[in-house]
Design a binder for these strands. Structure first.
Lengths: 121, 121
DNA sequence: CAGCATCCCTTAAGATACTG
DNA sequence: CAGTATCTTAAGGGATGCTG
């Protein structure tokens, strides 16, 4: 019984490790977006609805620090910047996929329960 | 090109739906803990390290509202309360599992990079 | 275009003390 | 045991304006 408890704590801790890396309101959505391919700053901002430039750049920087996202400055004028997942960042894809699946299913569930309210979301 | 963009947004939105439900610093860890079985309030507090009673009860209430967790008051004295995942709550297990896997792997990665720092975590 | 600086406000969340 | 109530602080995050 004691051992079971101990093992659970390790698992819970692993979840926390992941959560720490992905903390913030937007990181997972950003990674999800980059999962579809390379994106520029503005493209990300359009795709991740509701995010402001400040948050976007901050979250991107943190993701870059953790080696999940690669930032490439292109020598154009005006300057263009591309973001893409690193190989390590791509290892998050399974989590993202599960979240997308769940979210899509959840929306269906809500809609079948109370279609009226769901439309408002 | 336009269609692709539109489809991505739907996916990103699905991620957001999921994230909204799982928002908060502790919900995912709580669900992870309950994934191992029924837990009482105090057991949860011990297992989800660092969480305070206030946050725990608040997060549990929100999870209950979203039909992810079931709360059962046992008629003992002093009162005992049990928490467990609902059937719907169990559908989050795939996400949780992926997060555990990733977190465990990430810890290994960090350790092999800089063992000294990793010990401090 | 990409992003930083600044200001400002709301929310999250910790600490502490108390109750049925 | 299983919470609630209250207070306080730290952080998150939005809006706006500016720059290379």
């Amino acid at each position: 019984m004691e051992k079971v408890h101990t093992e659970c704590k390790g698992k819970i801790r692993a979840i926390h490790d992941t959560l720490d890396i992905l903390s913030g309101k937007w990181k997972i959505a950003i990674i999800g977006s980059l999962g579809f391919g390379t994106r520029r700053f503005m493209e990300l901002q359009r795709e991740v609805e509701g995010i402001g430039a400040k948050m976007l750049s901050k979250e991107l920087r943190e993701l870059e620090i953790n080696d999940l996202v690669k930032r490439t400055v292109l020598d154009t004028k005006p300057v263009t910047v591309e973001y893409q997942l690193t190989e390590y960042g791509k290892t998050l894809q399974d989590i993202i996929d599960e979240m997308m699946k769940w979210g899509e299913n959840h929306r269906k569930r809500i809609m079948s329960e109370s279609p009226k309210e769901a439309e408002l979301i």
